[in-house]
């Protein structure tokens, strides 16, 4: 009896169950492989593909797709594929880190507001305040104010990266905070929270052990949606000239560069647009599968 139990506990890690469930979700598996493929292409591609995304070659301007330039070249003769690949690096890292920042902020504020009654009023008014702020002017002013200092401290690209990620993160946590607060309020009245309190579990462990795991699903959903919003906001910023420097490609930048010649060269809009959509879609499916896999009630059905 005891040996049997021992074998079992030794052999089975909980994360294997999660993986098993994740595998059964076809969409999630597909999403994960597409996302992985995009990441591999974007980060390893530039080592394989010989062209420099910044290299200007006037003799080969506005080329259509060919074997030498599978995605053609732009109005300055730069290779589109090379620009797509190095743009993807920036877009994906901006998307992921801005999403992480906004989810962390939103979850923190949502949980605090929902769990501690005294903080609820002030924190939710703060959320309302942020929702009411005109975000674009705010971002523009902030980037004007901090661009120089950050560039001086972290180098031009590093500084802008920090600026953009934190601006997007700080201005997009509100939805998450509201959703999480609502869920925490409902969760707080559940009997298992009361049971934990009767055991004498202190608040911080109550939150990490009972509250957070049970608000995983809405957090997961807003996280996957957040990546999309972050990539799109970054492209909007680049379009307005407040993002990365003009010669520094990102998917949003490529999209905006090509918009004015869309009627002549539609494929230049198509590729970055497709890349953004594909990334967002694959992350969404992955998040969906992950959410299901992390829920023990769904697991094993």
């Amino acid at each position: 009896m005891t040996d049997k139990a021992d074998i079992r506990t030794a052999a089975r890690n909980q994360w294997w169950d999660v993986w098993d469930q994740f595998k059964t979700h076809k969409g999630a598996l597909l999403g994960a492989s597409v996302f992985l493929l995009i990441i591999i292409a974007v980060y390893l591609g530039p080592f394989v593909w010989p062209y420099d995304p910044q290299f200007i070659d006037y003799r080969s301007r506005n080329l259509s797709p060919s074997f030498a330039h599978p995605l053609g070249t732009d109005q300055l003769g730069r290779d589109q594929l090379a620009r797509m690949l190095s743009g993807g690096q920036v877009s994906i890292i901006v998307g992921l880190s801005a999403m992480a920042l906004s989810v962390v902020l939103g979850t923190l504020i949502g949980v605090l507001a929902g769990y501690f009654k005294r903080l609820d009023g002030p924190l939710m008014r703060l959320t309302d305040l942020f929702l009411a702020l005109p975000l674009l002017p705010l971002i523009l002013v902030a980037s004007l104010l901090f661009r120089e200092k950050l560039s001086a401290a972290f180098g031009p690209e590093g500084g802008i990266f920090i600026l953009i990620v934190s601006l997007i993160g700080i201005t997009s946590w509100m939805q998450t905070a509201r959703i999480v607060r609502g869920d925490v309020l409902a969760l707080k009245e559940r009997e298992f929270v009361l049971a934990a309190r009767s055991i004498g579990t202190p608040d911080r462990r109550m939150i990490t052990r009972h509250v957070l795991p049970n608000v995983m699903s809405p957090i997961m959903v807003s996280a996957t949606l957040g990546i999309a919003t972050a990539i799109i906001t970054e492209s909007a910023l680049s379009f307005l000239g407040f993002g990365f420097p003009p010669d520094f490609p990102t998917w949003g930048r490529l999209l905006n560069d090509s918009v004015d010649r869309m009627q002549i060269y539609p494929e230049r809009v198509l590729w970055p647009g497709l890349a953004i959509s594909l990334t967002v879609l694959s992350v969404n499916y992955m998040g969906d599968g992950l959410r299901d896999a992390l829920d023990p009630r769904i697991r094993g059905r």
Partner: peptide, 9 residues
Amino acid sequence: QASLNPRMT
């Protein structure tokens, strides 16, 4: 049902 955390063994 309600008094046991669904995410804990």
